[in-house]
Design a protein around this nucleic acid. Structure first.
Lengths: 329, 329
DNA sequence: ATGAAAGCGCTAACAG
DNA sequence: CTGTTAGCGCTTTCAT
């Protein structure tokens, strides 16, 4: 409790020779005020270099204008672009953004929910793994989920993942691949990514081919991933096509394949998923299914704001995807 | 002011048959309390599902446990990794992270400083372009700058950029390049990136070669950048080496070069800068100067916390860099 | 070991 | 058009 000597409303009022109320009115431009008074107050504020204390205001209004973003990590082309987009839209609507990299840690996710309950944030946009979402939150709090099925009541913004899985798999089949392998999260992870796997499995079955999925999780390190992919090639030397559930995995798979002497696309064709702007710059050759990341951000903020405005039934939204041509498939 | 019917301290006190003070003590585990009372209070809290209102607490303590991060954008391999690292360290020390993507917009940067002054954050880590930093902030507020010379008093965490510029340029010279071009921000942008340019210019002069820098700014769009690099090849067809001031530019340059029929590294050698983890996954072939991004995050949080703890003179820190071997140079 | 009362800085009835 | 008064929910002297 050091600097308890901040300039406050009262000081301004005293200097301007008016009441606190009047200063408050000037500050918020509310009610009728004579120009003369306004003038005096503004002068006093300037002279004292007055800054309103936002915390005090928040205590009264019960609104912090803060929105929490809970995603596994911002250090990723997809989440980076998404969070940057969310921040931009939220900012325009007067909200500041609290960053929460859950690193797939349920405890950290839980803590962000606590922030909600402690009135430190007005809403939450969540894209993290598997938060334990208490019932009383589900019902009453402004929450939007992105690409994750969190709880029945919470609206989800997601790509048409099934369609994306179809596009990717069909592309590999059209390329003449006979042994296509897929990567995805373990089945129990409740993400809409699973739609990509379903489409892959359905399409493989339809074509009378076996469906094989190698499982990789969020918290799998780069080294572990490389080991898994190396194992993939050892266990399935016949593989001639891989549908990776995201571009980062696609990149790693191609690295490993090349190290093992396989040529892409001659020996092995690879299709990724996400198509984030940053990825397109660093690895434009990658054939991938592109999500409308910017639009996901736009829509998510919209859904959140409707809830903050009091709307109770807010529907989920599914966005279209596109196959981006590259040279890896 | 809808839901003004939150459970509060008073309700807990009433139910437990004690005073607000006692409940507060239980809550903060302060002072002497009989186990019996503690018990009762805890039960009451559980029964009412009580959540302390953090805003009210903040009003008293004048501490929000919020730290602002102001960088151009989080949608970038370098800033993404950096901000994820900062968030992780801040989180461990009990701070939440306010994300501020300034997009190189002075107005947005200014607004974040306002947040500071309005007591909504306890400190600031800044890596944005060129904020007008008011004197009264410089002196009294916990601020750390990353890779930006913001103001004399503010400690800077930066890589040894000059050394990095030397390594990159020397590498191209050793490769036998005779016409090396550099990309960087306009000279007036006050970033430590300029050290990379200085080293480049010095080394070129020493070797009796002309130094040519093409300028690219933060807010330059991908299309504009491509146009600039296309112009570079048109104006300097003799170019056989490029030292890009960051990996994204290096990636774009290589894209443009290939489109113009130049082979990398046969016809043109390229060295980048940053070496972020994400870039290494998507574009491992790139020869680049790697910054210790994770360590920058660690150090920055440390310097900030020292300031928050009251230390007044905090020195700047320079971190070592490494040349990462790839196949583009 | 516990409580009463004052106040953090601001806003909004309600008067006038 | 302006002021008085009563809080927002919590913490902390200062008593007892």
């Amino acid at each position: 409790m050091e600097k308890r000597r901040q300039v406050k409303l009262e000081d301004v009022a005293a200097l301007a020779g008016v009441s606190k109320t009047t200063v408050s009115r000037v500050l918020n431009n509310r009610g009728y005020l004579s120009n003369d008074t306004k003038q005096k107050v503004h002068e006093a504020m300037a002279q004292l270099n007055y800054r309103p204390n936002a915390i005090a205001r928040q205590l009264f209004t019960q609104k912090t204008n803060l929105v929490g973003l809970v995603f596994p990590t911002v250090n990723d082309p997809f989440f980076g672009q998404l969070e940057a987009g969310l921040d931009e839209h939220l900012y325009k609507r007067g909200y500041r953004t609290l960053m929460g990299n859950s690193q797939n840690n349920p405890q950290k996710e839980e803590q962000y929910l606590q922030l909600l309950l402690n009135h430190q944030i007005d809403g939450l946009i969540i894209g993290a793994h598997n938060p334990a979402m208490p019932d009383y939150l589900e019902a009453s709090m402004p929450i939007v989920s992105i690409e994750r099925a969190v709880a029945p009541q919470i609206p989800v913004v997601a790509s048409d993942n099934y369609r994306g899985g179809q596009l990717a798999t069909q592309r590999l089949l059209d390329d003449g691949c006979r042994h296509i392998i897929h990567t995805n999260y373990p089945k129990e992870v409740m993400t809409t990514n699973q739609g990509r796997r379903e489409a892959y499995e359905d399409l493989m079955r339809t074509n009378g081919r076996p469906a094989i999925t190698y499982e990789v999780n969020y918290d799998t390190s780069v080294e572990e991933k490389k080991a898994i992919f190396t194992r993939l090639f050892a266990e399935h030397p016949e593989v001639d096509g891989i549908f990776a559930d995201n571009d980062t995995n696609a990149g790693l798979i191609i690295q490993v394949a090349k190290q093992l002497g396989r040529r892409v696309p001659a020996d092995l064709k690879v299709v990724g998923f996400d198509g984030a702007d940053g990825t397109r710059i660093l690895f434009p050759e990658l054939t991938t299914v592109q999500q409308s990341i910017n639009e996901m951000a736009t829509v998510a903020v919209e859904l959140l704001e409707r809830q903050i405005a009091g709307q109770t039934k807010v529907a989920s939204v599914t966005l279209p995807i596109t196959l981006l041509e590259g040279t890896t498939a």
